Amino acid sequence: MMERSFTIIDEAGIHARPASILVQTVSKFSADVNLEFKGKKVNLKSILGVMSLGIPEGAEINISASGEDEAEAIQTITEVLKKEKLAK
């Protein structure tokens, strides 16, 4: 299993558009990918799960992946979060 922590820098937090981008990105991988915020963990392949967390600007999140392509999944998520200026 691989994990990575991020700080959300988008002033709107993780709202519908970035949540959709993340879900679409992660859905390409076979690994199980989870997003954790304030002790709640959801499947990052579920738009409803991600939206239910209500992640604001400044939030510390943790993304974990386990499975065959976990390293590639974490790397791709990191690139998308930085490219979209969502997290650092």
Rank of each mutant, 00 (worst) to 15 (best):
M1V: 08
M2Y: 15
M2C: 02
E3F: 10
R4Y: 06
F6C: 04
F6P: 05
F6K: 07
I8T: 05
D10L: 11
D10C: 02
D10E: 13
E11V: 07
E11Q: 12
G13P: 11
G13D: 09
G13I: 06
I14V: 15
I14M: 12
H15Y: 12
H15W: 03
A16C: 04
A16G: 06
A16L: 12
R17S: 10
R17Q: 13
R17P: 03
P18D: 01
P18E: 04
A19W: 04
S20R: 08
S20T: 14
S20A: 15
I21S: 09
I21N: 09
I21T: 10
L22T: 01
V23E: 03
T25F: 13
V26E: 02
V26H: 06
K28W: 10
F29G: 05
S30R: 15
A31D: 11
D32M: 06
D32F: 00
V33G: 08
V33R: 04
N34P: 00
N34G: 00
L35G: 04
L35T: 02
E36N: 14
F37I: 09
K38F: 01
K38C: 11
K38Y: 02
G39D: 09
G39Y: 14
V42I: 14
N43M: 01
N43W: 00
N43V: 00
K45G: 08
S46Y: 04
S46I: 01
L48C: 06
L48I: 14
G49S: 05
V50P: 00
M51F: 12
S52K: 03
G54F: 03
I55T: 11
I55H: 12
P56I: 01
A59T: 06
A59S: 14
E60K: 15
E60N: 15
I61Q: 07
I61W: 07
I61H: 09
N62E: 11
N62M: 13
I63R: 03
S64N: 13
A65Q: 10
S66D: 13
S66F: 02
G67L: 08
G67S: 05
E68T: 11
E68H: 12
E68P: 00
D69Y: 06
E70A: 14
A71Y: 09
A71W: 00
E72T: 13
E72Q: 15
E72L: 15
E72H: 13
A73T: 01
A73D: 08
I74W: 08
I74L: 08
Q75R: 14
Q75E: 15
T76R: 14
I77R: 00
I77S: 02
I77H: 01
T78S: 15
E79W: 03
V80E: 07
L81Y: 11
L81P: 06
K82F: 10
K83H: 10
K83L: 13
E84M: 06
K85N: 13
K85E: 14
K85R: 12
K85M: 08
K85F: 11
L86Q: 07
